[in-house]
């Protein structure tokens, strides 16, 4: 395990040698993030894997509806040179397609499937990215998109129940709020010293 700051520099040099990142951020001692163009994602992931970043830790997306794009994020890890590398790429929100990274990282299979389920991003190259995983019989837009409103969905999906008995409080004696107010008033009246 070598010096961690050297590792971050190593990653930066490696990325600069291969592609031209849009943005570079260093997050702490053990983490570095690159924003790259969509077409460079596979190139840089192959380069990182060859340099030892063999573990795909996380793959997901972030929805930015105002700017009309999804931001895909790949986090890879090298245990010999411990640095987490975030690779982020923006893709169109109207037509979210990016080639699967399955040939590079076989472990991406279920991450991509989940990403498709929750964001609707398509991953051609992954044989079963379209199969449902967690959400059964989902019939709305993918739920982790920002324009999906769980409350509206729930109101539409599960109509308001009609109760045959009326449980609303009519008598003040049963009201919890009233009881609480009475308790506070009593406690204040019993308290000695200066009244506030």
């Amino acid at each position: 395990m070598t010096n961690s700051m050297n590792n971050v520099e190593f990653v930066k040099a490696l990325v600069a040698k291969n592609i031209e990142p849009v943005k570079t951020e260093t997050i702490g001692k053990y983490q570095v993030a690159f924003e790259v163009r969509k077409n460079d994602v596979h190139h840089i992931l192959v380069a990182l894997k060859n340099a030892g970043w063999i573990q795909l830790s996380y793959l997901s997306a972030i929805d930015w509806p105002e700017e009309n794009h999804f931001e895909l994020v790949y986090i890879v890890m090298n245990w010999e040179k411990p640095v987490y590398v975030q690779i982020r790429a923006k893709i169109q929100r109207d037509d979210p397609v990016i080639d699967s990274v399955l040939p590079i990282y076989p472990g991406a299979k279920y991450y991509e499937r989940e990403c498709h389920e929750f964001f609707g991003v398509k991953f051609p190259g992954n044989p079963d990215y379209e199969k449902q995983l967690i959400l059964e019989n989902w019939d709305d837009i993918p739920p982790l998109r920002k324009d999906f409103d769980p409350e509206a969905y729930s109101d539409r999906k599960f109509p308001k129940r009609v109760y045959t008995t009326d449980y609303s409080v009519t008598n003040d004696k049963d009201s919890k709020l009233k009881k609480r107010e009475q308790r506070i008033a009593r406690a204040l009246s019993l308290r000695g010293g200066k009244k506030q």
Partner: peptide, 20 residues
Amino acid sequence: AGYVYSPVESSRGEFGYYMV
């Protein structure tokens, strides 16, 4: 504002939160 990934060693392996 920012992006960060915060890993922790759990009893089953690397457990992390990616936070934006």
